[in-house]
């Protein structure tokens, strides 16, 4: 009877992910990271309803004031409520960070896997394309995109993702190159499985470790890139803001009004911590060898 139960526990075929989820739930830090991230996302989504003020609501007479009961995070030079600005900024930053990273992940993993697995001439051509794109100054690339498609926040996500996938593709390719020569891949070929099946079930799952680690590193990179582009006037426009922009403005007035740097900085750090814990937890959870149960 026990044998039957053992099998019924999990869906056949989805067991790596089912097991990974089971293991992830036992990792306290990862669960904490996931929780913090979820809370941040929910808060960002609900910003219009929970923010105490309007994000463009100025009070020039008030000017920059330190944190108080009326303004928990203080106010900026225009007298705008920082808590509100951080809440709204989180919408942009989280969206850019997660969506652009996801775009980079999808393109990079697909590209790198195909190049690495097929090898030979296909690999050479695909990787030279990556090299050529690397050589292109990405600011020019993004300006080009903006010129052709017009400026929109959605395009910003795509543009950043389209730049960030290059490194991802290289990492994945290197992983796949070593994995495709392992005997279990040869065994899968001898078994008569098709190439897409082998890639999906045998190659990609075994290269997930570095992919996840790099993805968690990409998120902050992307958020800062967005701030940089916005600073140049290519990203989001005032009075809208993001954590990256708030930080770069805050850094300018650090000595007079440190709260303008501290609070958006804290919000960004909290996100990164949560992501790193979650990323490490995911990597371990997806590797059955790391720990038993």
């Amino acid at each position: 009877m026990t044998v039957g139960n053992v099998i019924m526990d999990a869906e056949p075929g989805a067991s790596l992910w089912a097991d990974a989820w089971r293991r992830l739930k036992k990792n306290k830090l990862a669960v904490f990271g996931l929780l913090v991230l979820s809370v941040l996302i929910v808060i960002a989504l609900l910003a219009p309803w929970i923010a105490p003020y309007g994000y463009e609501q100025q009070n020039l007479e008030l000017g920059a004031t330190p944190p108080s009961f009326a303004h928990w995070f203080g106010t900026d030079l225009f007298g705008r409520d920082m808590l509100t600005r951080v809440l709204y900024g989180g919408r942009v930053s989280l969206a850019v960070g997660l969506i652009a990273t996801f775009v980079a992940l999808v393109i990079g993993v697909t590209w790198g896997t195909i190049a690495g697995y097929l090898g030979g001439r296909t690999d050479a051509v695909m990787m030279r394309i990556v090299d050529a794109l690397y050589a292109l100054p990405f600011i020019i690339f993004i300006i080009l995109l903006m010129v052709v498609f017009g400026r929109s926040v959605l395009l910003l996500f795509v543009a950043i993702g389209a730049v960030e996938w290059l490194t991802m593709a290289r990492i994945v390719r290197a992983q796949v190159l070593s994995i495709r020569n392992q005997e279990f891949v040869e065994a899968a070929r001898a078994m008569g499985l098709s190439t897409p099946h082998i890639l999906a079930k045998h190659v990609v799952p075994n290269s997930l470790g570095p992919i996840i680690v790099y993805a968690t590193l990409t998120v902050p990179q992307v958020m800062l890139l967005e701030a940089f582009l916005s600073f140049l006037g290519l990203g989001i426009q005032p009075p809208q803001s993001s954590w990256g922009l708030l930080i770069s403005h805050g850094a300018n007035v650090m000595e007079d009004s440190p709260w303008l740097l501290i609070f958006p900085g804290l919000a960004l750090s909290l996100t990164l911590f949560a992501l790193n814990f979650l990323g490490d937890g995911l990597r371990d959870a997806l590797d059955p060898r790391v720990s038993k149960d």
Binding site: F184, A188, A190, L193, H202, D287
Partner: peptide, 29 residues
């Protein structure tokens, strides 16, 4: 034709996908 023509490899540490359970490995083909 491959199902009729199979192979056993030398190193059982390398020839099994480390991320698949016995069930996955045997059920897949």
């Amino acid at each position: 034709l491959r199902p009729q023509l199979q192979m056993i490899f030398q190193d059982p540490y390398a020839s099994l996908n480390p991320r698949r359970t016995v069930f996955d490995t045997l059920a897949e083909p």
